[in-house]
Write a protein that binds this DNA or RNA. Structure first.
Lengths: 127, 127
DNA sequence: GTGAGTGCAAATTTTTTGCACTGCG
DNA sequence: CGCAGTGCAAAAAATTTGCACTCAC
């Protein structure tokens, strides 16, 4: 069991008190703005430790890993390619079909990642 | 319309004549082994150009972009976390449900990425 | 000769690592 | 003391970019 140090507590609180998806760099920057200067390596290691403990979850985008609160039901993500907004959605049928597809190929499925790209409602309205 | 130079032709032929998923670095290395030394930047630019022309397709993993032949029906990927093998699968129902989920959120869906992680058959047998 | 393409090396970006140092039990 | 955690700076790894050079039309 990793230690929940002051820095990690700060990181955890910040993630828990927001509904956003944070990547290490942005989170470190935002914390610094609020007076919590934490070394970037500590943020990376802290996030990994918190995820290992199950205190936060993550999703991987091509260029960065984003962390979010853990107390949510499983869901997948929709990313707006225009403004970067991340929305969540879930569909049990899709989940089931994925398992079936894996079984069909003899895969012992351990996880999956489904990301839908597109333009969100507000970006669409802006043209 | 980009030019199909000697280098790009070489890259294209290599991808078309194999059923594998290539990332730029591995492809450049493999081509070099076969006597086709192409600068890594040229490989990156060539792959991007070929994809723009629709001559090859790609999938994005967290740490690298993999290119494959374009003359295939749409499919998603299953990646073995043990040996790195990439298998393909497709499921129309999943595709449809994704569109429905996007529409439900008011997203103008432009693409998606579904990757299933797990252990492939042969890795499972090895224990 | 003009513009796209090439190759090399330097720069970028995200994340990891080495290492000396700090803090708590 | 013993050790996990921290911070900084250097290292990795994939990809991009600046720039001089080459080549086909």
């Amino acid at each position: 069991m990793a230690k929940l140090t002051t820095q990690r507590q700060t990181i955890l609180d910040h993630i828990n008190s927001s509904n956003q998806h944070w990547n290490a760099v942005d989170l470190a920057h935002d914390l610094a703005l609020r007076g919590h200067k934490i070394g970037i390596a500590t943020v990376f290691r802290g996030l990994a430790a918190l995820e290992t403990e199950g205190l936060i979850s993550s999703m991987q985008l091509k260029d960065k890993k984003c962390y979010e609160r853990a107390n949510k039901a499983h869901h997948d993500h929709m990313v707006c390619t225009s403004c970067g907004t991340i929305e969540e959605f879930s569909n049990d049928t899709i989940e089931t079909l994925q398992e079936a597809a894996a079984a069909d190929k003899g895969f012992d499925m351990t996880g999956h990642q489904l990301v839908i790209f597109g333009r969100c409602t507000s970006c669409n309205q802006k043209g």
